[in-house]
Amino acid sequence: MKILVPVKRVLDYNVKVRVKADGTGVDLSNLKMAMNPFDEIAVEEAVRLKEAGVATEVVAVSCGVAACQETLRAAMAIGADRGILVETDVELQPLAVAKLLKALCDKEAPQVVICGKQAIDDDANQTGQMLAALMGWPQATFASKVTLAGESTTVTREIDGGLETIELKLPAVVTTDLRLNEPRYATLPNIMKAKKKPLDTVKPDELGVDVAPRLATLKVAEPPKRSAGVRVADVAQLVDKLKNEAKVI
């Protein structure tokens, strides 16, 4: 069984975001980039399935600029067998990525695609579901447990207020939530090995996909600063405010 894992290169989780002074976007120049944390969980899950003998091959895919190769190498250092870079300088939005992934799924015929549930940059939370729709496959989003058996997979999902377990026919798309696993630390020998694993590069037009963005970003601004509210004199006034002004209790 082949598993495909899309991985996205994003601003490192620890690096503070800064909105550009001219409001055209977020400043990313020369900043530290890293693999989207949810995608790291996806790679880890796929590699564990391979180590458990359920999967036979784990293919990592990244869509974007040439530097996404580093992200693919990081995925291979965790244990992915090879990488595919869909290289473009165009700003990619989730629908375009889903179409690129569909083209690769048509070629690679994986049984399972494991995606991060969302990227920590655009916070869209769309790509996995869109890919499933385009493929006509079932989906299990926000997975906290994945069991593969024969023709189907059983996935426990994190839903508001609890957990839901569903059974999907394969092939299927699974998207990861935080609690699915804790990714391993890549070791030096594995980072060294990853440098020698195969990495293919294709272009969107070779896959016949139009990746033109559908949404135009007009402006990016800092979030409104929270300002101090009022000081209450005592507990009674606090309760009154919460009940009658804020109406939250």
Partner: peptide, 14 residues
């Protein structure tokens, strides 16, 4: 919101 609410994007759909 993008970047976990650290920036707000105004987007227009075509």
């Amino acid at each position: 919101p993008i970047y976990a609410g650290n920036a707000m994007a105004t987007v227009k759909s075509a």
